[in-house]
C-alpha cells in the first residue's frame, strides 16, 4: 500500500497539505508537556515509519518537501504567537529531512537530525509557557522591552531563537550545512532553495526577538527567571553547543 504509506509518513515527516495535521494537533494541545512530547516524537515516528517505503523516495517528493519548508518559513514571518511559531518552524525544518534522506543518510543520523531540530523548539515552548504565566499570553508586540524588565529571560530567549534559526555552533547549523551539501550533490538548485528557507528562518527569528525584547519596559512588575532556572537553561544551551561542536568534529 504505497499510497497509504506515503500519506502516513507525509503526516509525520511533514509534506504539505498533510503538514497541517501536526499544526492542528499542536494548536489544540494546551498542556506544555504534551506540546514538548509532540515536538520530540512527531518526526521520530515519521522516521521510524520511513523504512515502510521499500522503493527509493520518488523524485516529486523532494520539490514538495522544499515547498513545504519554504511555505511554513514564509508563513512564520507573519506569526506573533510563540506556540504557532514553534509549530511552523518545526514543520519547515522537519520537511528538510526528506532532502537529507534523499542523500542516503544513515537512519540513526536522521533521527539525530530530527532531535537536533526539536531540542531548541522544546526550550522555546518552555519559555513560551513562562511568558504566558507572566503576561497571560506569549504574543509578540503585546508587551515589549523584555530586555529591560526580564534581562535573564531575554538572554536565554535570544540564545534559544538563535539555536532554532541555525546559527553557527548550534547543532541546527551543522544539520543545515549537511542538508545543503546533500542537496548540492544531486541538484545544485535545490541547495539554493534550502539556503533561501534558511534565510526566511533568520528573518522570522529576528521578527520574533524584536517583538519581545526591544522597546521600553512596561509598567507591570514581573519576576525574572531565578538563578536555578537560568542555570538549567544555560546548561541545556551549553549541551546544544557541545553537540554542535561534536558535529563540527564529525564534519571536519
Amino acid at each position: 500500500m504505497p499510497t497509504g504509506s506515503y500519506l502516513l509518513i507525509g503526516l509525520f515527516l511533514p509534506l504539505f497539505p498533510l503538514s497541517m495535521g501536526f499544526n492542528f494537533v499542536l494548536g489544540k494541545s494546551r498542556s506544555t508537556l504534551l506540546r514538548i512530547v509532540l515536538l520530540l516524537l512527531w518526526p521520530q515516528i515519521g522516521l521510524i515509519l520511513l523504512p515502510m517505503l521499500d522503493s527509493p523516495v520518488p523524485g516529486w517528493i523532494i520539490p514538495l518537501a522544499l515547498f513545504t519548508a519554504a511555505l511554513y518559513a514564509l508563513r512564520a514571518l507573519a506569526l506573533r504567537d510563540v506556540g504557532q511559531w514553534s509549530g511552523f518552524l518545526a514543520t519547515s525544518a522537519w520537511a528538510l529531512l526528506w532532502i537529507a534522506r534523499q542523500g542516503d543518510m544513515p537512519m540513526l543520523q536522521l533521527h539525530l537530525f530530527a532531535l537536533g531540530f526539536s531540542a531548541p523548539l522544546v526550550l522555546l515552548t518552555l519559555l513560551g509557557a513562562g511568558l504566558a504565566r507572566r503576561f497571560g499570553a506569549a504574543y509578540t508586540g503585546l508587551y515589549g522591552g523584555l530586555a529591560e524588565s526580564l534581562p535573564r529571560f531575554s538572554a536565554i530567549l535570544v540564545l534559544v531563537v538563535l539555536a532554532i534559526i541555525a546559527t553557527p555552533l548550534f547543532p541546527t547549523f551543522f544539520i543545515m550545512l549537511v542538508t545543503v551539501m546533500q542537496a548540492a550533490t544531486f541538484m545544485p538548485l535545490l541547495a539554493v532553495g534550502v539556503t533561501l528557507v534558511w534565510l526566511l528562518w533568520s528573518w522570522a527569528g529576528a521578527r520574533l526577538l524584536q517583538g519581545f525584547i526591544v522597546g521600553p519596559a512596561g509598567d507591570e512588575a514581573v519576576i525574572d527567571l531565578n538563578r536555578l532556572a537560568t542555570g538549567a537553561y544555560a546548561l541545556a544551551l551549553t549541551l546544544l553547543v557541545a553537540s554542535g561542536l561534536y558535529g563540527l568534529g564529525v564534519l571536519l
Binding site: T185, V192, T195, S202
Partner: peptide, 21 residues
Amino acid sequence: TKITYRIGDLPLLIAAVLLYQ
C-alpha cells in the same frame, strides 16, 4: 544589516560546499 549579511552568507556557503565537493 543582519538580513543583508545573511543574503551574503548564502553564496559563500554554496561556494564552500561546491569547493568541498
